[in-house]
């Protein structure tokens, strides 16, 4: 049997809002490590990795590892049936082809049962050690930059140097360049921009995906953007001390 109880149910709603437009179907893996997911968008250009650790739940019981295939749009529909301040319990019996969502508020409770699906998924081990540039910045600022740039062009070039991180695009009406320099705010660390770099790195990515990733902005005040030496982009939002949601994006390369 698998059962988890999340007092701050709105967190799970925000997680679904962050990924449901990027990924259609995904296997939620339940194990002693936590409630996790790894899935790709239909074009296989982006990969999402989610982890919610057991200690972040009021109750977490996982008798054996299970994988629950869910359609994220349907899961989102069910989560929207619960109130924002509701406590959410998710339960699945071993071998069952359904999962139950229970919403509790001081005024009452509601149960929804959703059919599970069989989903073939491809797991990738992400090698974080090849990371050569890491930028931590306010998530709202990153969201604003992606939105602004997508009004000009389709592709963003992200360049990290000693000068800072530069986001550039080009379109029919002209070009745009936005530079963020390191800026440490001791009083409000969440408003800081921190750049760690072992070597300058530059690569280009479709803005459509970047804008999709920023749907996770309500989960965290800060975002961490990493580029590996092989030019894989990782965009990470931490989830209130209980885990993270990471988006990985493959680069555009020259012909």
């Amino acid at each position: 049997m698998f059962e988890l109880r999340l007092v701050q149910g709105s967190l799970l709603k925000k997680v679904l809002e962050a990924i449901k437009d990027l990924v259609n179907d995904a296997n939620f893996d339940c194990s002693a490590t936590g409630f996790s997911l790894q899935a790709m968008d239909p074009s296989h250009v982006a990969l999402v990795a989610l982890l919610l650790r057991p200690d972040g739940f009021e109750h977490y019981r996982c008798d054996r590892n299970i994988s629950m295939g869910m359609n994220l749009n349907n899961m989102s529909k069910i989560l929207k049936c619960g109130g924002n301040d509701d406590i959410i319990t998710i339960r699945a019996d071993d071998g069952s082809d359904t999962v139950t969502f229970m919403f509790e508020s001081p005024n009452g409770s509601a149960n929804f049962e959703m059919n599970l699906m069989d989903i073939d998924s491809e797991h990738h081990g992400i090698d974080e050690s090849k990371c050569c540039a890491v930028v931590r910045m306010p998530s709202s600022e990153f969201q604003r930059i992606c939105k602004v740039l997508s009004s000009i062009g389709d592709t963003v070039v992200i360049s990290v140097t000693n000068e800072g991180v530069q986001f550039s695009t080009r379109g029919d009406i002209g070009t745009a360049n936005i530079v963020c320099r390191q800026n440490i705010n001791v009083d409000k660390p969440e408003e800081s921009t921190v750049i760690e770099m072992s070597q300058p790195v530059s690569s280009q990515f479709p803005l459509r995906y970047m804008n999709s990733f920023t749907k996770a902005t309500p989960l965290s005040n800060t975002v961490t953007i990493s580029l590996t030496s092989e030019l894989l982009l990782a965009v990470e939002y931490t989830i209130a001390e209980m885990g993270y949601i990471r988006f990985y994006l493959a680069p555009k390369i020259e012909d």
Binding site: H44, V45, E230, Y248, A250, P251, K252, E254
Partner: peptide, 14 residues
Amino acid sequence: KGVQLSITEFYRSA
């Protein structure tokens, strides 16, 4: 303007 790699292609080429 370049070719977009998929995650699978990226890991194959990396």
